[in-house]
Design a protein around this nucleic acid. Structure first.
Lengths: 145, 145
DNA sequence: ATACAAGCTCAAGTAAGCTTGAAGTCAAGG
DNA sequence: CCTTGACTTCAAGCTTACTTGAGCTTGTAT
């Protein structure tokens, strides 16, 4: 398949496909002309990349995962399944965070108490200050002690 | 409060606070020295920003929301609640997507069928090609017709 | 008085994930 | 043959959300 064909069938822009190739996420053979030729299996790999991105992995992380596939033979269903084995937990964590945020939405902003120093949800006891940058408890840190 | 104090209490870096001010997300008064002074209410506004970011809003979108607060008086709980009224749905949508992805994880990658042109989940009937760029069905598009 | 921490501005840099443009080559139809 | 569209490389640009550094001023503690 040409790069244009792959782009159409995968929904991923040709420029992105070249970019993925540069990052060693996918590979291609070259026709005599120098044009890229992709085997059908490339679509599966690309699907995996898109999928993993939506789950929240960076391209670097995705590269690490893809590197675990056997280089010598076509990946089996077991190979693919192994790559994504940790994702269930990851997705669940993110869902849990969103549910915390939704709770905060009604319980904290909704009740009008939104204040980093007074609201228990946003910053329980003002003890968050020593844990490094970022939203802290909202994103799942545990209070010290 | 000084910028350092606000940074410590909110967990947001001083440089980020200056950046937010430049983007008109927050404001400050100036002491005679030129140093920023924040009222306690700033913490609430900052909390809102952090919160909204985690929900998935961009700073631009957050700015639009914050601009809806009454300029003449301190925001009430009703004011804050109005801002976040659409978030519940937004969060639910994202959760739904994650659950679709998780389903795809076991049903699609898990079963080894991951393939943009054959797998019903990843690309039902290969009809996605006309809907614009991106992951399409995975992110919730409906098939045409 | 003298450190030294903390604040200021402004410009430039960073990271991720691509896109766009320039300049040129290749392939298919009439 | 000639045009048109698809393809090539390479460098530069873009967006979001900040951070970092330079050079200078202020505030606080001893």
């Amino acid at each position: 398949m040409t790069i244009g064909e792959v782009a159409r069938r995968s929904g991923v822009a040709a420029s992105a496909l070249r970019f993925y190739e540069e990052r060693d996420l996918i590979t291609s053979e070259r026709a005599g002309s120098g044009h890229r030729r992709y085997p059908r299996a490339a679509l599966r790999r690309i699907a995996f990349i898109v999928f993993a991105q939506r789950v929240g992995l960076t391209l670097d992380e995705i590269g690490v995962e893809l590197a675990k596939l056997p280089p010598d033979r076509a990946p089996t269903r077991r190979d693919w399944a192994r790559l994504s084995s940790g994702w269930g937990a990851r997705i669940d964590e993110r869902i849990a965070e969103l549910q915390r945020l939704k709770a905060g939405l009604t319980e904290c902003i909704g009740c009008g108490c939104l204040s980093l120093d007074r609201c228990e949800l946003s910053n329980p006891g003002d003890r968050a200050a020593g844990l490094g940058a970022g939203p802290r408890y909202w994103i799942g840190d545990r209070p010290p002690g």
